[in-house]
Computed example of a mutant assay.
Amino acid sequence: MQQTKLKNKQGIQSSFAYTLLRNDLLPELLGKEEETILYWAGKHLARKHPLSSTEEICDFFQKAAWGSLSVIQEKTNKRVFELIPTLPTPTHYKLEAGFLAEQYETMTDCVTETLEQVKRKRVLFTVESNAKETAQ
Protein backbone atom coordinates (compact mmCIF):
# COMPACT_ATOMS: atom_id res chain seq x y z
CA MET A 1 0.00 0.00 0.00
CA GLN A 2 1.45 3.32 -1.09
CA GLN A 3 1.31 6.03 1.57
CA THR A 4 1.50 9.71 0.81
CA LYS A 5 3.55 11.65 3.33
CA LEU A 6 2.49 15.08 4.53
CA LYS A 7 4.63 17.65 6.27
CA ASN A 8 3.01 19.97 8.78
CA LYS A 9 3.88 21.74 12.04
CA GLN A 10 4.08 18.42 13.88
CA GLY A 11 6.46 16.92 11.30
CA ILE A 12 5.97 14.25 8.68
CA GLN A 13 2.81 12.18 8.95
CA SER A 14 1.33 9.35 6.95
CA SER A 15 -1.96 9.80 5.13
CA PHE A 16 -3.02 6.34 6.30
CA ALA A 17 -4.85 7.65 9.39
CA TYR A 18 -6.72 10.29 7.40
CA THR A 19 -7.67 7.80 4.69
CA LEU A 20 -8.75 5.27 7.29
CA LEU A 21 -11.07 7.78 8.97
CA ARG A 22 -12.39 9.45 5.82
CA ASN A 23 -12.92 6.42 3.60
CA ASP A 24 -13.56 3.58 6.05
CA LEU A 25 -14.82 4.80 9.41
CA LEU A 26 -16.97 7.85 8.60
CA PRO A 27 -19.08 6.12 5.93
CA GLU A 28 -19.73 3.26 8.37
CA LEU A 29 -20.67 5.57 11.25
CA LEU A 30 -22.73 8.07 9.28
CA GLY A 31 -24.41 5.67 6.87
CA LYS A 32 -26.73 7.09 4.24
CA GLU A 33 -26.60 10.53 5.88
CA GLU A 34 -22.81 10.81 5.46
CA GLU A 35 -22.81 13.45 2.73
CA THR A 36 -25.40 15.65 4.46
CA ILE A 37 -23.62 15.43 7.81
CA LEU A 38 -20.20 16.17 6.32
CA TYR A 39 -21.57 19.21 4.45
CA TRP A 40 -22.98 20.49 7.77
CA ALA A 41 -19.68 19.67 9.50
CA GLY A 42 -17.82 21.74 6.91
CA LYS A 43 -20.13 24.67 7.61
CA HIS A 44 -19.52 24.20 11.33
CA LEU A 45 -15.74 24.24 10.80
CA ALA A 46 -16.04 27.46 8.81
CA ARG A 47 -17.93 29.12 11.67
CA LYS A 48 -15.17 28.05 14.07
CA HIS A 49 -12.46 29.30 11.69
CA PRO A 50 -13.88 32.43 10.02
CA LEU A 51 -11.81 33.79 7.15
CA SER A 52 -12.14 37.09 5.34
CA SER A 53 -10.72 36.52 1.85
CA THR A 54 -10.33 34.00 -0.93
CA GLU A 55 -6.59 33.96 -0.29
CA GLU A 56 -7.13 33.00 3.36
CA ILE A 57 -9.50 30.22 2.29
CA CYS A 58 -6.92 28.83 -0.16
CA ASP A 59 -4.26 28.97 2.59
CA PHE A 60 -6.61 27.17 5.01
CA PHE A 61 -7.11 24.31 2.51
CA GLN A 62 -3.34 23.93 2.26
CA LYS A 63 -2.83 24.00 6.04
CA ALA A 64 -5.66 21.51 6.58
CA ALA A 65 -3.96 19.17 4.07
CA TRP A 66 -7.11 19.22 1.94
CA GLY A 67 -5.07 20.19 -1.10
CA SER A 68 -4.23 23.10 -3.34
CA LEU A 69 -7.28 25.32 -3.92
CA SER A 70 -7.37 27.99 -6.61
CA VAL A 71 -10.01 30.22 -8.18
CA ILE A 72 -10.61 29.50 -11.87
CA GLN A 73 -13.66 31.75 -12.37
CA GLU A 74 -15.05 34.63 -10.34
CA LYS A 75 -18.22 36.62 -10.92
CA THR A 76 -20.37 38.73 -8.61
CA ASN A 77 -22.41 35.90 -7.06
CA LYS A 78 -20.54 32.86 -8.38
CA ARG A 79 -17.05 31.46 -7.93
CA VAL A 80 -15.56 28.29 -9.35
CA PHE A 81 -12.61 26.71 -7.54
CA GLU A 82 -10.32 23.89 -8.50
CA LEU A 83 -8.93 21.63 -5.79
CA ILE A 84 -5.95 19.39 -6.38
CA PRO A 85 -6.27 17.05 -3.36
CA THR A 86 -3.21 16.32 -1.24
CA LEU A 87 -4.40 12.83 -0.36
CA PRO A 88 -5.98 9.94 -2.23
CA THR A 89 -9.36 10.93 -3.59
CA PRO A 90 -12.41 10.22 -1.43
CA THR A 91 -15.69 9.61 -3.26
CA HIS A 92 -17.01 13.07 -2.36
CA TYR A 93 -15.88 16.40 -0.96
CA LYS A 94 -18.94 17.48 1.01
CA LEU A 95 -16.88 18.59 4.03
CA GLU A 96 -14.87 20.97 1.86
CA ALA A 97 -17.99 22.11 -0.02
CA GLY A 98 -19.79 22.97 3.22
CA PHE A 99 -16.71 24.86 4.41
CA LEU A 100 -16.65 26.98 1.25
CA ALA A 101 -20.40 27.62 1.38
CA GLU A 102 -20.28 28.91 4.95
CA GLN A 103 -17.18 31.05 4.41
CA TYR A 104 -18.82 32.86 1.48
CA GLU A 105 -22.19 33.04 3.21
CA THR A 106 -20.47 34.85 6.07
CA MET A 107 -18.46 37.13 3.77
CA THR A 108 -21.38 38.08 1.51
CA ASP A 109 -24.22 37.90 4.06
CA CYS A 110 -26.21 36.02 1.40
CA VAL A 111 -27.45 32.43 1.40
CA THR A 112 -24.72 30.43 -0.34
CA GLU A 113 -24.48 26.88 -1.61
CA THR A 114 -21.54 24.92 -2.98
CA LEU A 115 -21.78 22.13 -5.52
CA GLU A 116 -18.89 19.81 -6.22
CA GLN A 117 -17.84 17.93 -9.31
CA VAL A 118 -15.18 15.26 -8.85
CA LYS A 119 -12.93 14.85 -11.87
CA ARG A 120 -9.99 12.46 -12.23
CA LYS A 121 -7.39 14.10 -10.00
CA ARG A 122 -9.18 17.33 -9.19
CA VAL A 123 -12.42 18.65 -7.81
CA LEU A 124 -14.40 21.63 -9.06
CA PHE A 125 -16.45 23.58 -6.54
CA THR A 126 -19.12 26.01 -7.73
CA VAL A 127 -19.98 28.47 -4.97
CA GLU A 128 -23.15 30.46 -5.62
CA SER A 129 -24.58 33.20 -3.42
CA ASN A 130 -28.19 34.32 -3.70
CA ALA A 131 -28.09 38.12 -3.40
CA LYS A 132 -31.88 38.19 -2.98
CA GLU A 133 -31.79 36.03 0.14
CA THR A 134 -29.80 37.28 3.12
CA ALA A 135 -28.17 34.86 5.52
CA GLN A 136 -29.49 34.64 9.06
Rank of each mutant, 00 (worst) to 15 (best):
S129N: 07
A101N: 06
K132H: 13
V80N: 05
S52C: 06
E33R: 09
Q62M: 12
H44V: 04
K7H: 13
L30D: 01
P50T: 08
I57N: 14
L115C: 10
V111H: 05
Q73I: 02
Y104F: 15
L26D: 09
Q2T: 07
P27S: 09
Y39K: 03
D24S: 10
V118N: 07
L6G: 13
L30A: 05
E133G: 04
G42Y: 03
G31F: 00
E82K: 11
L21K: 13
E116V: 01
L21C: 05
G31T: 01
Q2S: 06
F99P: 04
T4F: 15
H92W: 01
K121R: 02
T89V: 10
M1V: 04
L6S: 14
K63V: 00
L21T: 11
L21R: 15
T86H: 15
E96T: 06
I37D: 00
T126Q: 08
S53H: 07
A64F: 10
P88E: 14
G98A: 05
G42P: 02
S68G: 08
L69H: 07
S14W: 02
T108P: 09
P90Q: 09
E116D: 08
T134D: 03
H49N: 14
W66Y: 12
R122F: 05
L30T: 01
L100F: 05
L38Y: 01
A41N: 03
K75N: 13
I37S: 00
T126I: 09
A46V: 04
G11E: 11
C110F: 15
P50K: 11
A46C: 03
A64S: 11
V80H: 06
T134L: 03
T76R: 13
G67N: 05
P27W: 04
K94Y: 00
H92T: 13
N130W: 01
W66M: 12
